[in-house]
């Protein structure tokens, strides 16, 4: 029975009830029986975040920059209009695979013409501002299939957001630049020579650096999972998605 909660007063014990869980956006969308405004907004937000893999896929397919931008907008507009969520459940609730499948379907069905009319009323204003600086497609990417390019940019988006959050949080630490320096060590083993460098640079003891790094790494892992959790159906899927991303990224 839902009514059972041991409500307590926050100032003394600020967790007002046992139910305290952040809603992941994608699970919201997935569960929507009807089109609730909340689900719509959630999906819009997700589109705004994950447009880049879609765009990169289209570029790798050979579209020009302008065409790719238009297609991306159209695709998302159409998605939001008539999202077919039965298909999502088949994808086991992974937004990444769902979007790619949806995109391919969209391209095959050539809805562009229909969408051309609606373009003016674009509901998802995606800002392509950052594109120019990034437009240099890596040489390596030419050797990859479009699907792989898509996954790679998906992963980059995830990591980008995670690092952005880490940096923002790091500003509270009172040592400007420390988070950035420590972030560089994040993959691979904790590296004692590099850490003692940092200790010298910032006037800290090596132990303090070690601890800070450890905390950063914990936080990084947490944020990484949180970020991925936004795009899968249940917390249990997070690990699987991370692994798939990693495998997809390895040559």
């Amino acid at each position: 029975m839902v009514l059972r909660c041991d409500g307590k007063v926050p100032a003394q014990n600020f967790a007002a009830s046992g139910v305290a869980f952040t809603t992941t956006r994608w699970s919201l969308v997935m569960d929507a029986q009807a089109e609730s405004p909340l689900a719509q907004r959630a999906l819009e937000e997700l589109c705004r975040i994950y447009w880049r893999p879609i765009y990169s896929f289209l570029r790798r397919e050979g579209k020009t920059a302008e065409d790719a931008q238009d297609l991306t907008q159209d695709f998302f507009a159409q998605l939001l209009e008539r999202g077919d969520f039965a298909a999502v459940r088949q994808e086991k609730g992974r937004l990444r695979s769902y979007l790619l499948g949806s995109l391919k379907h969209f391209l095959a069905n050539d809805r562009r013409r229909a969408m051309a009319r609606k373009r003016g009323e674009g509901r998802v204003p995606i800002s392509f501002d950052y594109l120019r600086s990034e437009e240099c497609v890596d040489v390596e990417e030419q050797a990859l299939s479009p699907d792989r390019v898509y996954d790679r940019h998906w992963a980059l988006t995830v990591l980008d957001r995670v690092f952005a959050r880490l940096l923002v949080e790091g500003q509270h630490l009172g040592r400007p630049g420390l988070t950035e320096r420590l972030s560089e060590l994040l993959s691979g083993e904790p590296d004692p020579p590099a850490q003692s460098q940092i200790a010298r640079e910032f006037g800290m003891t090596e132990n303090a650096v070690k601890q800070a790094f450890h905390r950063l790494r914990q936080r990084y892992r947490q944020l990484l999972r949180e970020e991925v959790a936004q795009t899968v159906a249940t917390p249990a899927d997070v690990e699987g998605e991370l692994r798939e991303l990693m495998i997809a990224l390895r040559p």
Binding site: R152, A155, L156, L159, L186, S187, G188, R217, Y220, R221, L224, R225, E239, L242, R243, L245, M246, L249, R250
Partner: peptide, 9 residues
């Protein structure tokens, strides 16, 4: 990216 994700697991 792959190594970064791996270290995140």
């Amino acid at each position: 990216p792959a190594c970064l994700i791996e270290s995140g697991l």
